[in-house]
Design a protein around this nucleic acid. Structure first.
Lengths: 356, 356
DNA sequence: TTGTACGCGTTATCAG
DNA sequence: CTGATAACGCGTACAA
């Protein structure tokens, strides 16, 4: 004997046909049935403890009220706030979230998408878009509505919820310029990722706007958005260039950059200024607290959910990306160039404490 | 026309009966058909691009190859590593993870469990167990295998994967004692949570073991495992007791405790020693780096997945909890009592810098 | 407004 | 070893 009570059980107990029960219990078709019947059916269903089977309904309707969320690595603190907000919004709308980590592995990503497709996800939120990925064509073939989070994809015709990365990085550079820095370096993100390209573009544009583009800017690209890559990048930057400030493409990279600077005996915020990007949780409590570009984590998750829900309703993807405005948060990792400190004379040719 | 290719399509193309296709394609029943048939069917299925429908299979088998993970709040950095590891292990076994945040709201928790039940989850990982929660009886009624993570529940007959919280806290206290502290306070976790009770018990036991139980220990319980609650708790502790060190029940609480100490003009690690619990990501980079009890985050997620998988296979819950051994990580937030510093004379009656 | 009949894609259970 | 048949639980044209 099964302990599951089905629509047929309710129908029997209420003395009506299963179809009627279905109509009475389904909010969208309730008005196809007499108020009286609806009430009685509802009462009986409740009494019997009936619970709709999302699986059976899904098989019939080809909709699972389920959406998948793919992140590269949940342990990266940028993602939890986004995922959390998205999940909350989706839950409100009656959806359940499937979560998976791709490890930025294209094969794994494809596998996960296939698996989620098998579970008939109604939509997919991709926070892991990279240029090499064939995720999008896969989703298109599978006819799964998609929304990109945090990253765009070149000439992709799927909606994306992103930050204004150019503007955000420009904010950081402008801040450094205002502090008096004239030799500003950049640690860029990994190639093939839109945030890396956009932030680097913003960096260069801001430098130009400040009239600081007379010489090539010191730029090193990190291999990945990890602390280890950040350390390596900063080490290379220190070994090959002179600068008094570095605008870094990502907070995670900053952690490694801090390590490299510490190892070189340089004090962050006084010897060398550092700015990050994301304002991920806890960078306000590291030492020194990081000046960074705050993105709207939660709003990003909410908007992504909203876009996806709309897309699933309309059946047609939104054409325009949603661009969120970033905001500069000034903390102690940035300050005036060392030689410009009160009491120290400004030396024109070499005004900064350097690693050489 | 539907773009979905079904078992019937494959059967037609391969010239066999749908049942045969099912058997040939299902790894567990493959040996019920001829090798030749299996191969041909597989080839045809592949050529046609057949993808199994987990939903249809689930309807029939009453198994969704899906498991739910409930956390209080994904933004709390303890959880991502656990969830990530669990998801990885589950994915290996072919499962998909449904993730949801309960906000430690019992009603919301119940709703989410019901919803997941509707999706026919094969199992549930609960990281949000609190004493008031009726989650467990709900799961039992719904006949959903459960594993508890990080927290136990009194007299619950479901398996749990937890830390040895008593031992962990004892490690921290012992460390403080070894440093020379004799007046050690405790900020406890919220009532009704097993980790709070166990860690407090460990604290008291360690104090007794050190012969420091001649007077009642300064203990304040926080309302929740949040930074805000930690700050409040530390403020109350400072206002009412004397101590040179505090063993705190949780890293999150420590963040707030740091704030309270800073506001009181006390330097963590020198004026007042602080130890945490969890070694959550980034507490090694806050200022000062936190001495804390490291739990095996990833292992906890892996074990939980393993237990659940076993439980689902056997149909019967494991009887014994899995207890993971914690480890003390000493950083700069703990040091000898201020008055014991080299050069400073030891004053018997009042050897600590205090907040009064 | 309600009942009839069937399909969604798969698998379990029989026969053969 | 393979084929036929019936379910799994629900939704929905269509008919009444």
């Amino acid at each position: 004997m099964s302990f599951r009570v089905t629509i047929a059980d309710v129908a029997r107990a209420a003395g009506v046909h299963p179809s009627t029960v279905s109509r009475a219990l389904n909010p969208t078709t309730r008005d196809m049935v007499t108020q009286a019947v609806a009430a009685r059916v509802a009462e009986v269903a409740d009494r019997l403890g009936w619970r709709p089977s999302a699986v059976a309904a899904g098989l019939r309707t080809r909709k699972s009220r389920t959406i998948g969320i793919l992140v590269p690595d949940l342990v990266n603190p940028v993602f939890p706030p986004i995922v959390r907000a998205a999940e909350a919004r989706l839950a409100e709308a009656g959806y359940v979230a499937l979560l998976a980590n791709t490890d930025t592995d294209a094969a794994r990503e494809a596998l996960l998408i296939e698996r989620m497709a098998a579970h008939l996800v109604d939509g997919l939120m991709l926070a892991s878009a990279a240029s090499g990925s064939r995720a999008l064509e896969l989703c298109e073939r599978l006819r799964i509505p998609v929304v990109l989070i945090n990253r765009r994809l070149p000439d992709a015709c799927v909606p994306a919820v992103v930050n204004d990365d150019r503007r955000g990085m420009a904010l950081a550079v402008r801040h450094l310029v205002d502090l008096g820095h004239t030799h500003i370096g950049h640690i860029a993100g990994p190639p093939g990722v839109s945030t890396a390209a956009d932030r680097q573009a913003g960096f260069l544009a801001a430098l130009a706007a400040a009239g600081l583009d007379d010489r090539p800017a010191p730029i090193v690209a990190a291999d990945a958005y990890t602390a280890a890559a950040g350390r390596l990048a900063m080490e290379r930057l220190l070994a090959t260039h002179r600068f008094s400030a570095v605008a870094v493409a990502n907070d995670m990279l900053c952690l490694g950059a801090y390590d490299a600077l510490a190892a070189a005996g340089l004090a962050v915020g006084t010897d060398i200024s550092v700015t990050g990007f994301n304002d991920m949780p806890f960078v306000d409590r590291i030492s020194p607290p990081l000046t960074t570009v705050r993105i709207q984590h939660a709003e990003m998750g909410r908007q992504a959910a909203k876009v996806l829900i709309a897309e699933m309703a309309n059946g047609t993807p939104m054409s325009r990306d949603i661009v969120l405005e970033p905001e500069l948060v000034v903390r102690s990792s940035s300050g005036p160039p060392a030689a410009a400190s009160p009491g120290k004379p400004q030396v024109v040719d070499r005004p900064w404490r350097l690693y050489d």
